[in-house]
Amino acid sequence: MFDTLPEHESTPEAYIGGLEILSFENVCSSTGRSGLNQVSVSVREGEVIGLAGLDGSGQSVFLKIAGNLMEPESGTVVRFGHNLAGNKLQQNRKETVFLPADRLSEGLIPGLSIREHLLLASDSPFFIAPGTGRQQAKQAIAKFNILGRPETVADGLSGGNQQRLLLSLMKPGARLILMENPTRGLDVQSGVWTWQHLRNQLPDNGAIIFASPDLEEIMEHAGRVLVFFDGRIIFDKATRATDFNQVSRAITGHVEAIA
């Protein structure tokens, strides 16, 4: 299936002209089914980018490297002007947020309550008096419409409420939001709410990059679509300059046939 690699197709002039906040230069990784193969891309302020592709084509690896949760084997990744090479593998929560697809096994901590999650995500002091954060948790529960109490553990929440909890943990002002399948497993109402919240939360000088198997979600919410195929970006266009069929064909590796 991945024997012959298609040519890259792009219309870079179509993008918003903000400052560059993330760049990949010839980034390679052998993690995952396809890894990443010589990926170069630039992300600018104000962009909402959808990553499309068959499962395991490199989208997840791309997001994890961008989030500094995985190290590439070669190439350069620059985020907010800083080369990520040599940085400790952890998230800089002030500027970048990564929301994983598997909320409970990758994003939340089973056994920890909503209050404890919020304490961990905030700049709480070293000593935490009993009951600290309860008020903050109540406010977050009300604001994010989470069906739970401050002491409800993450694994006791439904998928939609887990996603709401994840969103409540985002630092205000985070400029780069990286997401895997942001609305997977959510009911329609929760999905709409999630996108509304993300749009409201994102500052003007920020960007969202999300991977989704749902092409409709990408075409509806992204301003630019990148299609991954066998670890490479083979299609890079503004969503208004392309359509559902073109992207669908690109996902299966047929970009040379697109006029």
Binding site: L69, K88, L89, Q90, Q91, N92, R93, F98, P100, S105, E106, G107, L108, I109, P110, G111, L112, E116, L120, A121, L169
Partner: peptide
């Protein structure tokens, strides 16, 4: 507690 229960998620909270 976070590290003991989910190392991967703990990284997302800036924990090493």
């Amino acid at each position: 507690k976070a590290v003991g229960k989910n190392q991967q998620a703990a990284r997302l909270f800036g924990i090493q």
